[in-house]
């Protein structure tokens, strides 16, 4: 379909993307459970995906959607490895608390 966008519609999509980004951001900082932290990063990915696709659709450029495919790929890879590491950490300290792994300090 050769339907075109209005700029304000694009703004709407971008605001939604920004909202998801900001909320995921807040969640990443606030939650202490490691797994929920990673879920919030995935939330940020969602926001980014919406932004990519919206702007790509605005310019009828499909690179946006291609970017989303790659985001998906990377998110999957990262999730796999992150969860493997979380499992190992849990085995070591028997907790999922992010504050229990605070050795990276002065």
């Amino acid at each position: 379909m050769m339907t075109t966008f209005a700029p304000s519609a694009l703004s709407g999509y971008l605001i939604v993307s920004g909202l998801l980004l900001a909320i995921g951001f807040i969640g990443f900082f606030v939650r202490r459970n490691l797994i929920v932290m990673f879920l919030c990063t995935e939330l940020m990915f969602q926001g980014a995906a919406i932004a990519f696709v919206a702007v790509g659709r605005y310019y009828f450029d499909y690179s946006g959607q291609v970017m989303v495919i790659f985001i998906l790929t990377v998110a999957a890879a990262e999730a796999a490895l992150a969860l493997a590491l979380v499992v190992l950490l849990h085995r070591q300290n028997n907790t999922l608390d992010a504050d229990a792994f605070g050795e990276l300090q002065e």
Binding site: F29, V30, R31, R32, N33, T95, L96
Partner: peptide
């Protein structure tokens, strides 16, 4: 767990 109930 405590780390789920109380945010930082």
């Amino acid at each position: 767990a405590i780390y789920d109930r109380i945010p930082r």
